[in-house]
């Protein structure tokens, strides 16, 4: 019995270490890969806007954990939403982000990211990869990537000049739902409208 407990303890330790440890070098290489792909194959490339959107959607689905982010941004309303609402929200949230970000990423045309180290996160298996982008005027912009490792590396948040996109979306969506007569359904409807 004692042996079994010892074995289980060792196994649980192994798993907990797997969750806690996230290699800063690997996380940085991962973000380098994402930003290179984003800038070289999408922003700087001479392809049609439709092709850019398609490539961006692929990049977004491949490297971002949209389910994880989607659950977070609904805040307390995630718990009270039905399975159908959750699935619909995640779906429309992905479409909406692909659309807004493929446009926003265009602002990085001709620019490159400088990698300036990593910062640990208080969350298990997560780390911040710090980058700066030289702007045409003034100080370089500070862009931080929050990376999660649960088997594969995924981006869960981007922080631009101290402003987290996940927090901003959560604050915005929960404020919206609080005021909307039909709550989450109204939000889904509005996001669908804006994604067209």
């Amino acid at each position: 019995m004692k042996k079994l407990c010892g074995f289980l303890f060792a196994v649980s330790l192994l798993f907990s270490f797997k969750a806690v440890a996230i290699d800063s070098g690997q996380a940085e290489s991962f973000i380098k890969k994402v930003t290179n792909e984003g800038i070289e194959q999408i922003v700087n490339s001479d392809v049609s806007m439709a092709e850019k959107d398609a490539r961006f959607e692929k990049l977004f689905n491949e490297y971002f954990d949209l389910n994880y982010i989607g659950k977070f941004v609904l805040g307390r309303y995630w718990k009270t939403s039905s399975e159908k609402q959750r699935a619909e929200f995640i779906n429309v949230y992905c479409d909406f982000n692909t659309k807004t970000w493929s446009k926003r990423f265009d602002e990085f045309k001709g620019k490159s990211f400088n990698f300036v180290g990593t910062t640990p996160s208080s969350s298990e298996g997560q780390i911040f990869v710090n980058t700066t982008v030289n702007m045409d005027q003034g100080e370089p912009a500070k862009v931080v990537w929050r990376v999660k490792d649960d088997g594969s590396l995924k981006i869960v948040d981007i922080i631009i000049e101290n402003v987290s996109l996940a927090i901003t979306a959560r604050n915005e969506y929960t404020a919206y739902i609080k005021q909307a007569p039909n709550g989450v359904d109204d939000l889904i409807k509005d996001l669908k409208q804006k994604s067209k």
């Binding site: 307390r76 996160s121 208080s122 997560q126 931080v144 922080i159 101290n162 987290s164 604050n171």
Partner: peptide, 13 residues
């Protein structure tokens, strides 16, 4: 300390 660090599992807003 990163001012933008937060707990993703937090369900309260």
């Amino acid at each position: 300390a990163a001012s933008y660090d937060f707990d993703f599992e937090d369900e309260e807003d």
